[in-house]
Simulated assay, not measured.
Amino acid sequence: MFTGIVTDLGTILSIEDIPAGKRTRIRTSYDTDGFDIGASIACEGVCHTVTAKQNAPEGNWFDIESAAETLALTTVSEWKVGQQLNLERSLTMGAELGGHLVLGHVDGMARVVKREDHPDSVYLQFEATAETAPFIAKKGSVALNGTSLTVNEVDGLLFSVFLIPHTLEVTTWSDRQVGDNINLEVDMMARYAARLAEFTKTG
C-alpha cells in the first residue's frame, strides 16, 4: 500500500533480461539498511519487490524483477539505463496519508496528448483507455507514474491535471512530453463502487 507521494528520484543503473522478464538495478538515496529483501517499493507507480540491495560508497542501490505481465501492461518495458524513476516506499501504520491510498497495481497506460507550460503550473491532458476511463472522475484522485494527482476535467477518454512547481521539482514529471505513455492506477474506491453497482444492477 502506498500514498502516491514520491519520496525519492531513483536512476536506472542497469537492465538485464532474465527468464521471468527483466531485472533492473536502481540507484537510490534511501538507506537500504532500512528495508529488507522482499520489501515493496513503487517504481513509477508499479509495485515491485526488492530482490537485492546494498549501501555503497558510489551510491546505494536495489534490484527489482519485472514479470511478463508487468512488462505488457506498464511502461516498465520502455525503461532505459540512466532514466529517472519516481520511487515510494510502502506505507507504514501511523504514517501521514498525504495523497490517497494507492496499491501499486497499475490498471493500464494513459498517453499524454497535450502539455501547456504556465508560469506557476503545467497543464497535462491524457487519453485513457476505454476500460479505465469510466473510473476517472472530475476532482477525483488518480495515480499517474506513482504520483497522487487530482483530476481537473474529464471529457470522454480525455482527462487533465495541473502540476505545481513542487511536484515538477521532486518527480519525473518535468520530463514528460506529448506522446509519452504513463502508468495509470484508478482510485480503488471508484473501482469497488463500480463493482458494487454492477452487482446491484444485476441483482
Results as ranks from 00 to 15, higher is better:
Thr132Glu: 13
Asp120Thr: 12
Gly82Ile: 01
Arg89Met: 11
Val81Phe: 06
Gly140His: 10
Thr129Trp: 02
Phe126Lys: 10
Val76Ala: 10
Ser141Tyr: 09
Asn86Glu: 05
Glu78Pro: 00
Met93Trp: 10
Gln125His: 01
Leu158Gly: 00
Ala72Gly: 07
His105Lys: 11
Gly146Met: 12
Leu91Lys: 00
Ala68Phe: 08
Leu97Ala: 07
Leu144Met: 14
Met109Asp: 00
Pro134Gly: 08
Leu71Thr: 12
Asn145Ile: 01
Glu78His: 09
Lys80Asn: 14
Val154Gly: 09
His105Gly: 03
Ile136Ser: 10
Val113His: 07
Phe159Ser: 06
Gly108Glu: 10
Tyr123Arg: 06
Ala72Ser: 15
Leu163Met: 13
Leu87Glu: 08
Met109His: 04
Leu87Thr: 05
Ala133Thr: 13
Leu124Thr: 00
Lys138His: 11
Ala137Trp: 08
Leu87Ile: 05
Ala110Ser: 14
Val122Asp: 04
Gly94Lys: 05
Trp79Val: 04
Lys139Leu: 09
Leu124Trp: 03
Tyr123Phe: 14
Phe159Cys: 03
Pro119Asp: 12
Thr129Lys: 06
Val142Asp: 10
Ala128Trp: 06
Ser121Arg: 14
Pro134His: 08
Thr132Ile: 14
Val102Glu: 00
Arg89Gly: 09
Glu116Trp: 00
Leu97Pro: 04
Phe126Gln: 10
Asp107His: 11
Ala110Cys: 04
Val161Pro: 01
Pro119Arg: 05
Gly104Lys: 08
Leu97Arg: 02
Ala130Gly: 05
Leu144Lys: 08
Phe159Trp: 11
Leu158Thr: 06
Ala110Asp: 02
Leu97Phe: 07
Glu153Ala: 05
Arg111Thr: 15
Ala143Phe: 02
